[in-house]
Write a protein that binds this DNA or RNA. Structure first.
Lengths: 193, 193, 193, 193
DNA sequence: GATGAATGAGAGTTCATTCAT
DNA sequence: AATGAATGAACTCTCATTCAT
């Protein structure tokens, strides 16, 4: 992994903003270069291909969110429901803090090169599986309802979080923290036995 | 692809499948024509532009789902929670019944021509507003919790439904009806005061 | 040559207007059909090809103007200068009376099919040659100046007439008759020995 | 087509020749690229659109001819008739020296993008107006006839010049200088009071 | 006499990418 | 480290034309 130079980072930021605003397919390298204040050749100096730029969005987001989730999931000092609550609130907050990345994330996976798509989906799946295990554990210990499959529960609630980018606005009435708390509250409430 | 179905319909079906599988931007008119067994010119005989093809997906889905929702929302013979339960279960079932359309729907709005994007978003917004009013009514009459804003509640739960296409598989363990019931159960449970 | 039905004439008129307004190349059969109130197939019922439509403009104009010119050129009852004056005034007037045809005429010859282009140019050449002979006759008899070649004189003055369509407007200050007289006056004045 | 001239210029020359020979509409980018010895992409590296190519013909011609005309029109050291004579002879000579451009010029204005068409027509109009003022000045001072409107006079004689491209051939009997003198002689003769 | 479905060739244009400098 | 010239493939879309009905 290359070290981030200021220029490289500027290109990356420009790409993310444009991908979020116009979509990956509708954004040209030319536009990214212009927005970053370099030439097309300059972009290719730091990234091998347009696909590389997109892939890095996924790498960054996944690594960060997965790492935070795992830390919290493995923290036995809290009872399981509180742990789940904290995890959901946290992923909401980091998604909002990186809203453009989040928008790109759930809008453009299918445009990644096939092998990278597999890789991203696998990591995504691992994330989901870990959360599913927490839910299943709660069902086994009787703190969560058991009439709904754990997989569906996770798909349901993570799905809700994945749509954040389509409606949340920084200048709206709710802070990231408030949304995080509300989301976690709704999830936990829905799981009461 | 059948040869005896009307050409226009064959083109539309081919387009929906390809859009769902590869994304709107990554699907070429050439591919649609090939899949439908016509020439490129043939596609343009029935549709004015690629955008037209996409727009028709939205028109069909929106009209159908909005109409069903309104009928149920206005049906005073059921108590409000049951009405909401029925609405959610129904939109889940029709989304699964038209899963490819649903995938396209939530993946490609931003690729529509600007004016049509506005139109779709406005109709979508009307849909959400109607559901939000039901939730708010429940909050006012004390059957739903009031510590979470109605708007956020609707964004949360409709968001979960909108991600159906990213994980539901027809050959999986759950029928559309089961998913509908589970989703509606989760939503209602999360709203208990 | 087919007899003119009202529909056929309507198609022809629509074509001329559109060719004059937008150019031959930029006008589609579809537009002609729409303007004439028929379908594309209808146009092809009366004309074999788009080129046919254009060619007929030339046929009509050339036949009409050549015939009028010849009649006047051969009329020995008038002295030569007056004959030339009348000829010029007349071609100006008929060009203005059929201004759209005239515009098409001098803007689109090069778009005709090659063989028809040759044919039109040959007839056009015959027209010029006849006028050139009149000028040469005047030079031989001493009524016109001889220091300028007759060919150049004809090219000069017919050229001026051919540009009529680029500036004459029916709602402008001058009638067709006035323009005809002025043009003929200018020509004759320029030829004084 | 030479290989060592700068690419941009080679493309421009190829475009002018083809536009003059076949017309703007009937010339494809492909043909221009082939004639210039580059690829289609190469053409678009230097020109944003086909329209750009055409527009540049107008820009070059207008700037050059307008500037020459103004210098001569403003030169008070010559009496007005001689000035007008020199102007006409000069525009004829430069038109012949750039005959292909001249052909394109008067054949394809109507194919330019609307806004550029306006711009070209406005500059063209300014050119005509300046010449018209010279004629009017001559009428006011009694050196030119007054029974024909100055506007019509200018339209007449500039019209004749604009048709040069339709008949002048470099291998014909007359040099550019001879044609220029003859044209100017004819014009001046036609203006005698 | 007239239609509209269907074609096929080609148009202008965009763009990710390569590479010599 | 960075540029800009140049490519080539693909794209959406247009259109004159044909033909069965």
């Amino acid at each position: 992994m290359q070290v981030d130079t200021p220029v490289r980072e500027r290109v990356m930021r420009a790409a993310i903003s444009l991908f979020a605003a116009k979509g990956f397919g509708a954004t040209s390298i030319r536009e990214i270069a212009d927005a970053a204040g370099v030439t097309k050749g300059g972009v290719y100096h730091y990234f091998e291909s347009k696909d590389d730029l997109l892939f890095e969005v996924y790498t960054r987001m996944l690594r960060m969110q997965t790492s935070r989730m795992r830390t919290m999931a493995d923290d036995d000092s809290l009872p399981l429901p509180q742990r789940l609550h904290a995890i959901v609130a946290d992923v909401v907050e980091t998604s909002i803090a990186n809203l453009e990345e989040a928008v790109v994330f759930f809008q453009s996976v299918h445009l990644l090169a096939a092998d990278r798509q597999d890789q991203v989906r696998a990591e995504r799946r691992a994330y989901q599986d870990r959360v599913r295990d927490l839910v299943a554990e709660g069902q086994a210990t009787g703190v969560f309802r058991t009439d709904v499959p754990a997989d569906l529960i996770v798909n349901y609630h993570l799905g809700a979080i994945h749509r954040l980018g389509s409606w949340y606005r920084a200048d709206g009435p709710l802070t990231a923290e408030q949304v995080g708390t509300h989301f976690a509250d709704l999830m936990l409430a829905s799981l009461r036995p």
